[in-house]
């Protein structure tokens, strides 16, 4: 196991960010820490990196106990939401920073032969990395001359330059606009397939996590809600929180179910089907959203394609029968449903 977090507790004043938190993050994978803002996932990442100190518990990275180590000795790459670029250094100098620190700490005199050898090695490595993140032509620019997406790619190259044991990304695409975010996310996936460094990234965007990650850790209120592959989490949510956080849910017959997992028909085909009236029909592109008012007074949301809706003959005011499709992910709706935000 690559990163092992045991019994981590972190408080800010009265607020408990992480409560006796345990998780094992596997080597070589791309793992997403997913959860609502304030759920503790960024705090966890910063504790793994050594940027924050936990009140209790231990962290080990690649089998080495890192609990007492300062950030600069943990061998982790960290990418910040707002890039944290070194504004006064060129793109190439930004990427070279960690290598220079490691090579001689800036302490060896400029005339030392060793230093010249270091220089050549660093320059080569920086060129490789800039190639990797497609920024070669910007090597001599200052970060202020780059777009947000380019800055974040530079920050990634900077973190990767020192060949860290793990790469940690804190909401790496959170400050970018939707289109760039989508591009970078695919690019991150491809990059990871190339370099295979153990990568953990924090996000509150379920789509991002589902699309990019090998494994997702859902975190809420300072605790793990569920760990698993994207498919497993979507199809077999452990509880109503995970189900609600990973996609739309509606409630029918005391069960939480996804709106696209409901069979709708104008005749009672199956036993146990719930009867109701179509209260509203909304067309969004290829999709039709129907709000059905059941006889028990529940409002059920049903999603279906336009073709399907036409075949069924849905119209406002008609009577319909609803059943969850066989094999649909369902979770019993608790009387006091926890807030899924």
């Amino acid at each position: 196991m690559s990163i092992e977090v045991r019994g981590i507790t972190k408080r800010f004043g009265d607020f408990v960010a992480l409560d006796d938190f345990n998780v094992l993050l596997p080597s070589g994978q791309l793992t997403a820490l997913l959860g609502p803002s304030g759920g503790g996932k960024s705090t966890l990442l910063r504790i793994i990196a050594g940027l924050d100190r936990a009140d209790a518990g231990s962290v080990s990275i690649e089998g080495v106990d890192a609990t007492g180590l300062p950030a600069q000795k943990r061998d982790v790459g960290f990418v910040f939401q707002h890039y944290a670029v070194f504004k006064h250094l060129t793109v190439a100098k930004n990427v070279a920073f960690g290598l220079e620190i490691r090579a001689h700490g800036g302490l060896r005199p400029p005339w030392a032969a060793q230093r010249r050898a270091d220089r050549a090695r660093i320059d080569r490595r920086v060129a490789e990395l800039l190639e990797l993140v497609h920024l070669s032509q910007f090597a001599d620019r200052l970060p202020s001359q780059l777009s947000g997406g380019q800055r974040q790619r530079m920050a990634l190259a900077r973190a990767l330059a020192v060949e860290p044991k793990v790469l940690l990304l804190d909401e790496p695409f959170g400050a970018l606009d939707a289109k760039v975010r989508k591009e970078l996310r695919e690019w991150l996936r491809r990059l990871h397939d190339e370099v295979h460094v153990t990568t953990v990234f924090v996000t509150h965007d379920q789509e991002e996590a589902l699309e990019v990650a090998d494994e997702i850790v859902v975190i809420n209120d300072g605790r793990v809600e569920q760990i698993g592959t994207p498919d497993r989490l979507y199809d077999e949510p452990a509880n109503d929180f995970v189900m609600g956080f990973l996609g739309d849910v509606t409630r029918v017959n005391g069960q939480l179910v996804r709106p696209h997992d409901i069979d709708i028909s104008r005749v009672p085909l199956l036993a146990g089907a719930v009867e109701g009236t179509v209260a509203r029909l909304l067309r969004v592109g290829f999709e039709v959203r129907a709000t059905v008012l059941t006889d028990d007074g529940e409002e059920v949301l049903v999603q279906l394609t336009r073709t399907h809706a036409r075949a069924v003959g849905l119209e406002e005011g008609v009577t319909v029968w609803l059943t969850p499709v066989t094999g649909a992910a369902t979770v019993p709706a608790l009387p006091s449903m926890r807030s899924a935000g």
Binding site: L51, V85, A159
Partner: peptide
């Protein structure tokens, strides 16, 4: 302190972070 933290995570000590960042 973002830039300073980035420098730390890249292996720079307190003195190096101060001088270079």
């Amino acid at each position: 302190d973002d830039q300073e933290q980035a420098a730390r995570s890249l292996g720079a000590g307190a003195v190096q972070t101060f001088r270079r960042i």
